[in-house]
């Protein structure tokens, strides 16, 4: 057995020559029945998968923008890992959202057809904003996925089971940084507080159910986001307490005639984001990697 190089040693003793290092990857959908559960409207299920998938897709895109921009190389890789995990969730969910497939849903829908919450849309911000944003997003999504593990739809249940392990780590990453910066120097404390204040107007929307989310919850397939508010508040209160920060008291950003991201009404940033996300695929629709 070779011990010259750790990776040689790790790669030994399995046959799959395509992978240089680890193998035995898990297929999250292996053996999962993909028929729509009885009594569930297929269109509703597709729309619900778009909501959860779009959240992950757009959040992943914003995280990818930190590549080459993070303050430390180590954190850059950490953020890229999180972005990839979310992209993986998005792929499974968009593939579940109808016959047209994941690429169609990611690249060829227009802005008003996206169903993500507006929280994932804003561009830029400093590292303090990023951490506040990530803590809010991951705490909310982890709580959703934990409940979704018992979904009657076997695909959603499998995606959730995979996602819970990922999101647990993502939330841990964000919480550690929030505490480190919040309970750090006076300067880092102020930057961290400013981050939470910038994120806060888009928090209430996370817990406002769309009629489709309500229907899916009634059928035992989806989760009514209003039911995870208490858990979210508890997590945020504990992290912010450890970070010597206070929960911001900032009013929510109103929708347009009561419509928000889940209805396809987005912030200004969404158009620019989609232009970047979709321009290559639209300019070269036949292109493959």
């Amino acid at each position: 057995m070779s011990t010259e190089n750790a990776y040689e040693a790790l790669a030994e003793a399995h046959d799959d020559a395509r992978w240089a290092f680890g193998t035995s990857f898990d297929d999250p959908l292996a053996g999962v029945d993909t028929t729509v559960p009885s009594g569930v409207d297929g269109d509703d299920l597709h729309a619900y998968c778009l909501m959860l998938g779009d959240d992950a897709l757009i959040a992943s895109h914003r995280l990818q923008e930190w590549c080459t921009n993070a303050p430390e190389l180590e954190d850059e890789v950490a953020l890229a890992n999180i972005a990839l995990d979310l992209l993986g969730q998005a792929r499974l969910l968009l593939a579940r959202a109808g016959e047209r497939g994941e690429d169609y849903h990611a690249f060829f829908r227009d802005e008003q057809e996206f169903r993500n919450v507006r929280l994932v849309e804003p561009a830029g911000g400093d590292f303090g904003y990023l951490i506040a944003w990530l803590l809010v997003f991951t705490s909310w999504r982890l709580a959703l996925l934990q409940r979704l593990e018992s979904s009657r739809d076997p695909v959603l249940a499998a995606v959730a089971a995979k996602g819970v392990k990922e999101m647990t780590y993502h939330r841990d990453y964000a919480a550690r940084w929030a505490v480190r910066l919040g309970d750090g120097t006076e300067y880092s404390h102020d930057r961290m507080r400013a981050g939470f204040e910038a994120v806060w107007p888009l928090v209430d929307e996370l817990f406002t159910p769309h009629p489709i989310e309500r229907r899916m919850a009634e059928h035992g397939v989806g989760v009514d986001p209003a039911t995870v508010r208490a858990e979210f508040d508890d997590v945020l209160a504990r992290v912010l307490d450890a970070a010597t920060l206070e929960l911001p008291e900032i009013p929510a950003l109103a929708g347009v005639s009561g419509k928000t991201g889940r209805h396809g009404v987005h912030t200004e940033a969404m158009g620019y984001l989609l232009a970047e996300l979709q321009s290559i695929a639209r300019a070269h629709p036949e292109a493959i990697w």
Binding site: A6, Y7, L10, W19, A20, F21, G22, T23, S24, F25, E74, D75, V77, A78, N81, D172, Y173, R176, R180
Partner: peptide, 18 residues
């Protein structure tokens, strides 16, 4: 130490190594 452990997870176990 704790940050080192998490960075190590992110940097050196990305391909299912450990």
């Amino acid at each position: 130490d704790q940050m080192a452990l998490h960075h190590a997870r992110d940097l050196y176990t990305r391909r299912n190594e450990g």
